[in-house]
Design a protein around this nucleic acid. Structure first.
Length: 466
DNA sequence: ATCGGCTCGCGCAA
DNA sequence: TGCGCGAAGCCGAT
């Protein structure tokens, strides 16, 4: 019973249609994992109640939002593991290909005569659009389950938050109610008969990706994600507070790509970290409140990044359809950036020049190369990188478009609310305050290379990616 | 090495 | 209505 509430409080029903005869379908989209997945657990609870099969579907959109082959392979190899893990529980897995996602889902429902549809939550416009289209054209119940946030986005806040400081107290209050042990997926007693063989080789062999990106330096999949989590907890967590802002040190969690593809559950990450530190979430929240400025406390700093900032990014996209354009910036930032439009730019580079890492600044070029080469730019450098694109573009609109294009194309964790929020913070003052006025930036916070030189060994970082 | 000023607006206390 | 303070800073004065 307690388990049921733990799941159902994360569910939103989009229509008022009751269950119809047929298997229950979980359309897996943002959260590509078989374990610790509340959307899958909710779909299973319906299927068990109705004594019917449970099937899982993934719609593969090649080059989704401008991603490269590296992203494609990371996703597809992760899905192969999902298929194996689901098979152990007698749950069938399907993959359909095509960019017309909404139509693919509807025709699959008709073909397999499904009785209920469950999907996971994403605040991105494209995903919200698919779901609206589907909702208007199906006659079975349609549920959305937020299994990407610990506190579901619509419960954490019902409006667009102004900054981390306005969302933080709401999350801190709600976290103890949501951060509970996650129920296990059960072996499904009603197997589905009409399964189809998935041709993984064909899905992986994509000639149309004519890009020169390397294969990811990280191995994909949930099993690998849990290995990385264990190594973080054992080796890197204790110095996270000290090292996380030094791009020459590998002090991060290395989990961002897995989190982006939903190959690991953020709730599981928090539970594991707390277990290792032998702390409760109440203790962490209390400590965070007391020493708000104490940023070197590794556990507090990590929970702040993983929970507060991640959920703030979802809040930003969910309640602001302009999350990827100039219109999405706060008013004060739009005003100030409108006033600096005619300011003389010392350098102006084209998208191509940025992409080829051909600016006058070898520190910026190194960050760009780190991203292209490895699929993951260091978090601290992402701010410097985006702010310099603003400084060296002919307009804030150009800068924003270029930063999003590069981020979505090369980062393994691109095409994600975290990326849109991070870039909007850097270029458009989103979730930030006004600062000392500057050319081009106006009141938007400026960052200088000299600041980097004070904080870390810039020469070493440049060498690492020369 | 450390500190204050720069600057805007939310949210809470009064 | 006033006031404190915020997602990661910069700069010049001391």
């Amino acid at each position: 019973m307690q388990e049921d509430i733990n799941i159902t409080k994360r569910v939103l029903q989009l229509n008022k249609i009751p269950y119809q005869d047929g298997p229950v379908l979980y359309w897996m989209n943002r959260d590509c994992r078989a374990e610790d997945n509340f959307a899958l657990l909710y779909a299973q609870s319906i299927a068990l109640k109705e004594k019917v099969p449970l099937i899982v579907l993934y719609n593969l959109v090649p080059k989704f939002l401008g991603g490269t082959y590296r992203n494609h392979a990371f996703k597809v190899e992760g899905l192969q593991e999902v298929e194996r893990n689901l098979a152990k529980k007698q749950i069938s897995f399907f993959v359909v290909e095509g960019a017309d996602t909404e139509k693919q889902i509807i025709s699959f429902i008709k073909k397999h005569k499904c009785g209920a549809l469950v999907t996971d939550f994403s605040p991105l416009k494209i995903a919200l659009g698919w779901k609206k289209y589907i909702e208007q054209r199906i006659d079975i119940p349609f549920y959305i389950v937020d299994t990407h946030n610990i506190v579901p986005a619509w419960i954490a806040s019902t409006k667009r938050e102004f900054g981390a400081y306005t969302l933080r107290p709401k999350l801190h209050k709600l976290l103890p109610l949501f951060l509970l042990e996650i129920p296990l997926l059960k072996k499904h007693s009603y197997p589905y008969k009409n399964t189809e063989h998935i041709n993984w080789e064909k899905l992986l062999d994509k000639k149309e990706f004519n890009d020169a990106t390397n294969i990811a330096i990280q191995k994909p999949g949930s099993k690998e994600a849990h290995k990385v989590l264990q190594s973080f907890v054992k080796e890197r967590l204790k110095d996270f507070g000290l090292n996380r802002n030094d791009p020459t040190k590998d002090g991060g969690s290395r989990l961002s790509a897995y989190l982006h593809y939903g190959q690991i559950s953020p709730q599981r990450v928090v539970l594991e970290v707390l277990k290792h530190k032998n702390k409760t979430i109440e203790q962490v929240v209390q400590k965070q409140r007391k020493n708000a400025k104490e940023k070197s406390d590794s556990l507090c700093a990590f929970i702040e990044e993983l929970v507060v900032r991640r959920e703030l990014a979802d809040n930003f996209c969910f309640y602001n359809p302009h999350y990827d354009t100039f219109k999405g910036f706060p008013d004060w930032a739009q005003n100030t950036l409108n006033e600096t439009r005619e300011d003389k730019r010392e350098y102006i580079y084209s998208k191509k020049q940025f992409e080829a890492a051909r600016t006058h600044d070898d520190l910026w070029n190194a960050a760009q190369r780190e991203m292209v080469k490895t699929g993951k730019m260091h978090g601290y450098m992402r701010m410097y990188w985006a702010k310099k694109i603003l400084e060296w573009s002919k307009s804030p609109e150009d800068a924003l478009a270029i930063a999003i294009y590069l981020n979505d194309k090369y980062e393994l964790d691109g095409r994600d609310p975290n990326g849109y929020a991070g870039i909007a913070w850097s270029i458009g003052g989103t979730h930030d305050r006004a600062w000392f006025p500057r050319k081009v930036f106006g009141l938007v916070r400026f960052m200088a290379r000299s600041g980097c030189e004070k904080k870390f060994d810039v020469k070493k970082y440049i060498q690492m990616y020369s």
